[in-house]
Design a binder for these strands. Structure first.
Lengths: 155, 155
DNA sequence: CTCTGTGCAAACACTTTGCAGCTAA
DNA sequence: TTAGCTGCAAAGTGTTTGCACAGAG
């Protein structure tokens, strides 16, 4: 925990440098706000919401607006510098099928499709998870583009 | 479509009867609204939101309120007559860790924990999914109660 | 200098809560 | 009868959009 970086790959400045490169490659300007959002995100281990990050970043750039944080996060996700935790951000969706199955979600049209792949019906809960958490649900979850959305150009 | 039921297990009235039994067992009253919501849900294959179902049920019970539909769905999920699609209903949560990993989400406190179980890092996309969808993300996803939330009584 | 990004504010969409009258049991 | 359910209304929370000014390239 006190050990700064075990990933073996890059320290924080390296990550920032990589991020700057990524921005330029994507045609995005490197602004203090973007750097701050990126830095705060990679330092956060709690999968923060836009609001949680906003409050943290305010300590660094007091007059940053929530909208900038929110929009920047969305931008980071688009250029691949951040991930949106699977499923989050959608309205609640219900399923009346109680039989064990999996879901595929189209990130474009938001449709959710049932997947019945019995190999995935009994994924065992690894010991290290089962002892720390009480797992009530284990699913294999797919995201991507459905056939209809693949036909129209993205964006 | 005109074919009533191919599931082989139970026809619609059976499912409704089962649902009534489940309600009584849970100490819930069997109301026309609950029956209508349940019926509409199990007939829907598109993982509807409360609003989507509300509009459908309005055709059957024109003066039903959105709130009843919404609350009923939440109730169904509680008694195990419906499922909330994994992750949905939460605010967007971001992740700055790009390395392949999995998530455990506590349904009570909404905290999300990283899981690093390398066995799950390379779940192959089944042929029948890959040909129909363009999968950009495959994850094993866990839900349940974290240790802290297990200590306090649920509800 | 130019064009993108930022900050502010308003509009929206979804969810939750409280309460009075209604109804299943 | 009576506890629980429904419908209505309001408030709360998170997200999106439009626009004028500021700042990166």
């Amino acid at each position: 925990m006190s050990n700064p970086d075990k990933s073996g790959s890059a320290n924080r400045s390296d990550k920032t440098a990589d991020f700057e490169t990524l921005c330029r490659k994507a045609g995005l300007k490197v602004t203090p706000q973007r750097l701050a959002v990126h830095k705060a995100l990679i330092e956060s281990k709690d999968h923060p919401s836009a609001d949680m990050l906003y409050r943290r970043i305010k300590n660094v750039i007091p007059n940053i607006s929530f909208d900038t944080v929110n929009r920047t996060l969305l931008t980071l996700a688009e250029i691949g510098a951040a991930l949106v935790v699977e499923g989050t951000g959608d309205v609640k969706r219900f399923d009346g099928t109680l039989r064990k199955h999996q879901h595929f979600r189209c990130v474009k049209c938001k449709r959710i499709f049932d997947i019945d792949h019995t190999d995935f019906d009994d994924i065992p809960v690894p010991r290290e998870i089962g002892t720390k958490f009480t797992v009530t649900r284990t699913t294999v979850y797919f995201e991507g583009f459905c056939d209809a959305c693949m036909m129209v150009p993205h964006k």
